[in-house]
Every structure is written in structure tokens, then in C-alpha cells.
């Protein structure tokens, strides 16, 4: 049963990847210009040279032709050639992906480690002053744009010299508070929903101790939405930090992606987008597997 489920998920993932790559190809095609448009403005480069460059990059071919070239290249593990760097996209993306993952995994782990106990604690004291303060401050944090927050941290770091510019601690210091409030709110809400369930109140009325109530009734029930949330945050591992990376100068996918979009470096953009889609599929799959092992109801069906 698990096997057929996995097989179905694999099919879904392949379909998703096809659609995402097609979509990114189409959208890039709709944008005016291509990689060589700016070069056309340079009077020192002759039209002949331009034409031969276009031919070399395969820009003269039709869209379906280019797409099939890319699919064949992806199947070989290269994911096309970057025009700007003149190298296979995979070799270009791989080290940057690792450094992005280092940043996002560190800050995600940190955010979960802070948010989980804090959220449960706040939910257990719903309506108390610490809880209200927490809700208020998460709203405050959520309403500050990521960019402004990142710049603020940068200024503080530069003035006080506490954190090295471009280092991992600085980037984590920016990214963790950006993802923390949302996690905290979801965890608090999830635990509140679980602890408000009728059977929890019934158990409390039956004289079940608070300790047993929380660890046997509430937290197992709250784990369901939290596991889905965890899957989603794994899915966002590659894409959540793009903007922050650009601002703090972290050598990850963010700056590369921004540059590639600006320069119409076709295959790099498609490669990064497809990679994010793979992470999305992997994240949801991970959540589903965890749910399967955690919830007796799913296992029995």
C-alpha cells in the first residue's frame, strides 16, 4: 500500500516538474528580449558576430526545440548551458545550492527550535500577558517587510562590528526572525485548536492530570498540522532565502537567480525554478510520510 502510494507520488512529482519547467520556459519567452539584446546596442560588435553567437546559443531555434534540448540535457544531468558563465547549469548551481541549504537549514532548525516550545508554552497560557505580548510582537514582526528588517540588522551589525559582514551568523540572524513569527503563530494556533477539542475537555473533566493531558492528548493531535507545516518549510528551503541572500551578500542561489533573470540567462532560471519544485515535492512527500507514521488513523485506512 505504501509502495503504490510512493509510486503515485513519483508520478505527480514528474508531472509537476514538467509543468513547472514548461511554465518557466513560456514566461521567459513572453518577456521581451534575450541574452544578446544588450549586446546588440554595442556598435563595435558586427551583426555577423551577433548572428553567429545567436546560432551558437541556440537562440534562433523555436521554443519547442529549445525545450526538448533542455529536457535531453536535464536527463543527462546538465540542465542546459549558462550563457553568461559558459558552463553546464548543474555545475554552476550545485555549490551555490549547498551554501543556500547551509543557510536555510541552519536558520530553519533554529526557528523551529525556538518556535516549538514557545508556541506550545503560549498556547498553554492562552490569554495571559506573556501570550498576548507574544502575539502582539509576532504581528509586529510580520508587518515589517523582510527587506527593511534585513537592512536594519545590517546597519546594526556594521555599526557595532558584532557580526562579520557576509558571514553565516549574520545571514542566520536576518533569516531566522523573518521565518520565526509565522511558525510561532501556526504552532500556537495548532496547539490551541487541539487543546480546545471536546475530547480534551472531556479528559480534563474526567480528572486526567495536565501532564498526561498535554503529552497524551493535545500534542499528538497538534502534531498533525505541525507536520504539514514542517513539510512546507522544507519545501521552501531553496526559495525562502533568495531575497535575504541578495541583501546580506550570501553567495547562494539568490544573487545568481536575480542576475540570471536580469540577463535572461534562460537555462539557469529554469534550473533554479525546477530545483525549487523538486524541493516542494520532496517537502510534501516528507510531511506525508511523517503523518503516515504518526497518525494511527491514516495507517489503518
Amino acid at each position: 500500500m505504501l509502495k503504490s502510494f510512493l509510486l503515485r507520488r513519483l508520478q505527480h512529482t514528474l508531472l509537476l516538474l514538467t509543468l513547472v519547467s514548461m511554465g518557466s520556459f513560456l514566461l521567459l519567452e513572453l518577456a521581451p528580449g534575450d541574452f544578446l539584446t544588450e549586446t546588440t546596442l554595442n556598435p563595435r560588435i558586427s551583426p555577423q558576430t551577433l548572428a553567429s553567437l545567436r546560432d551558437r546559443f541556440g537562440l534562433t531555434k523555436s521554443l519547442p526545440e529549445r525545450y526538448f534540448y533542455w529536457v535531453r540535457s536535464a536527463a543527462q544531468g546538465e540542465f542546459g548551458i549558462s550563457f553568461a558563465y559558459d558552463m553546464p547549469v548543474r555545475a554552476l548551481i550545485w555549490p551555490r545550492m549547498l551554501s543556500t541549504l547551509l543557510l536555510t537549514a541552519t536558520s530553519l532548525g533554529l526557528a523551529w527550535m525556538i518556535a516549538l516550545p514557545l508556541g506550545v508554552w503560549a498556547a498553554a497560557r492562552q490569554g495571559s500577558w506573556p501570550d498576548r505580548l507574544l502575539v502582539l510582537s509576532t504581528s509586529g514582526f510580520l508587518s515589517i517587510p523582510e527587506l527593511v528588517f534585513a537592512c536594519g540588522i545590517l546597519i546594526i551589525a556594521a555599526k557595532t562590528q558584532w557580526l562579520r559582514m557576509g558571514g553565516l551568523p549574520l545571514a542566520v540572524c536576518v533569516l531566522t526572525p523573518v521565518s520565526l513569527p509565522l511558525l510561532l503563530r501556526h504552532i500556537r494556533a495548532g496547539v490551541l485548536t487541539a487543546s480546545g477539542a471536546t475530547y480534551v475537555r472531556a479528559a480534563r473533566a474526567h480528572g486526567v492530570s495536565e501532564m498526561r493531558l498535554w503529552f497524551r492528548h493535545v500534542l499528538p493531535a497538534a502534531s498533525h498540522p505541525l507536520i504539514s507545516l514542517f513539510g512546507l518549510s522544507v519545501a521552501g528551503l531553496l526559495s525562502s532565502s533568495l531575497l535575504v541572500e541578495v541583501v546580506v551578500g550570501w553567495p547562494g542561489l539568490g544573487p545568481l537567480f536575480l542576475e540570471a533573470v536580469g540577463a535572461r540567462d534562460f537555462y539557469v532560471v529554469t534550473g533554479v525554478v525546477s530545483l525549487s519544485a523538486i524541493f516542494l515535492a520532496a517537502g510534501t512527500l516528507l510531511a506525508d510520510m511523517l503523518l503516515y507514521f504518526c497518525d494511527p488513523r491514516i495507517r489503518m485506512n
Binding site: 475530547y199 479528559a203 493531535a221 497518525d295 494511527p296 488513523r297
Partner: peptide, 8 residues
């Protein structure tokens, strides 16, 4: 509703 749906 007073029975925990996850329990046997």
C-alpha cells in the same frame, strides 16, 4: 466528541 479519535 468526548472520545479521542486517535485512540483505540
Amino acid at each position: 466528541a468526548s472520545l479521542n479519535p486517535r485512540w483505540t
